[in-house]
Design a protein around this nucleic acid. Structure first.
Lengths: 246, 246
DNA sequence: ACCTGAACACCGTTCAAGT
DNA sequence: ACCTGAACACCGTTCAAGT
């Protein structure tokens, strides 16, 4: 025995593969290197086996991606289940807000999540459970099913904590940006400064003003968290005004 | 001369390749078969040449995708430029709504657009022009640059006419659904009915009520256009209340 | 029951060579 | 200037075979 018991098993006692181990390894690879770095061969490599061995535990790569979503959604459910039980009635907004921002907290640790979630063709039960809980909160808040249905569509992917940004006007994007810093699911592109001035007068003027004014004017210029919460609150406030009215 | 002059040139007078022709062919392939069917070999095939010939006109496949976005955004700009000039002040909302729904109309004809737009790492000038125009409308409507900036983040991809739906509760999705009917960019998955009843009480109850009540209760249950407009109006109304206030 | 080597069909892309 | 054949490095996946 060459290694302390605290250290994992050495190569001589290789842990056998299992669906669970395969999926966890896949999440680790995607977390660290982006979804683009996740290949069956790389996955097998990290597990100390051959690519073909994986197929005994998963049906195909799509199955791996489904499993990753399951791990993600389970993690989200664990977090939101721990939150204080929502007050009925007017308390719905605070509760829903807290639920969504908590889900977002989990997503921020898994930059591959938006892209992979969007690519799935079947809904994972764990994801369904999240939405069922959200729907329950809306109902407790006084929404009709019809209203709640509209509400969930209006939230869209924001209900799970992310949004689609198509480009970032300028300036650095904070490290927390879900979309950025990830080769496989590249984030919003930045606008090249040179072109701006002449061709796009409004965008240029906006950037100039921000730069000229107090740099803290927006306090979180293109800060994803700030913008996410702004949009979320805009929607939640709008929904709140709909409550009660037929 | 065997064919009428109205018919295109026969194989004996093959039109030479050009960047323009390559990009148009790429759009056609993706429109008809989904982005997944767009490969360099298939693209060359449709143009009657070899895959390697394409590389004389485009740098790499990414360049093809960039070009497709350019074609798309140009088409959108042509449509929105034709709209009536927006009235300043209170008219901003109607004008922005019309602009966005017009952009959506173009997107509906190109199901690959959302996925490809999201995958770009640099912003196409034509896309920038669209956003610059949108920003101009917000300014004319009385928004400060800071407010307009928040507004554009709040709209997110909705500004260009699409949203991220993660799943469809039930029922058929209309053909207009951008995300659906497209192998490469699969749309929201539907919930299997069997599981619903027991495991997800709120979702099940919602579906039951819709089914039991007047089937036209929602008039457009999971109709993408209806839901898109609901969410858009919710945001625009919320933004309208922000105007003027610091 | 679990794992693997060889092989297949498919990618995007390079490079030297053709006209 | 424009196009191409052969080839390379990479995919996901199948299948027959090993223990």
């Amino acid at each position: 025995m060459r290694v302390a018991s605290q250290v994992g098993p050495g190569p001589e006692t290789r842990t056998p593969l299992s669906r669970e181990r395969v999926l966890r390894a896949a999440v680790k690879i995607a977390d660290e290197g982006g979804i683009g770095s996740l290949t069956m061969r790389r996955l097998a490599d990290d597990l100390g086996s051959e690519a073909m061995s994986l197929y005994y535990h998963v049906a195909k790569k799509d199955d791996v991606l489904d499993g990753m979503v399951e791990i993600l959604a389970t993690e989200i459910n664990e977090v939101v289940d721990r939150l204080a039980a929502p007050a009925a009635g007017a308390g719905w907004k605070k509760a829903v807000r807290e639920r969504i921002l908590s889900a977002r907290g989990v997503l921020l640790r898994h930059p591959w999540a938006p892209g992979v979630l969007e690519s799935r063709t079947s809904v994972n039960p764990a994801v369904l459970r999240y939405f069922d809980g959200l729907l329950g909160m809306l109902r407790a808040g006084g929404f009709s099913y019809d209203q709640a249905h509209h509400a969930m569509h209006a939230l869209g992917s924001r209900a799970l904590g992310f949004t689609q940004e198509l480009f970032t006007p300028a300036g650095p994007t904070p490290p927390g940006n879900i979309a950025a810093g990830n080769t496989a699911a590249p984030g919003p592109a930045a606008v090249p400064d040179e072109q701006l001035a002449g061709q796009f007068p409004h965008l240029a003027a906006m950037l100039m003003e921000i730069a000229h004014d107090n740099p803290d004017a927006t306090l979180g210029w293109c800060d994803d968290q700030t913008e996410f919460e702004f949009g979320l609150d805009l929607i939640l406030d709008g929904l709140d005004r709909l409550r009660g009215q037929a």
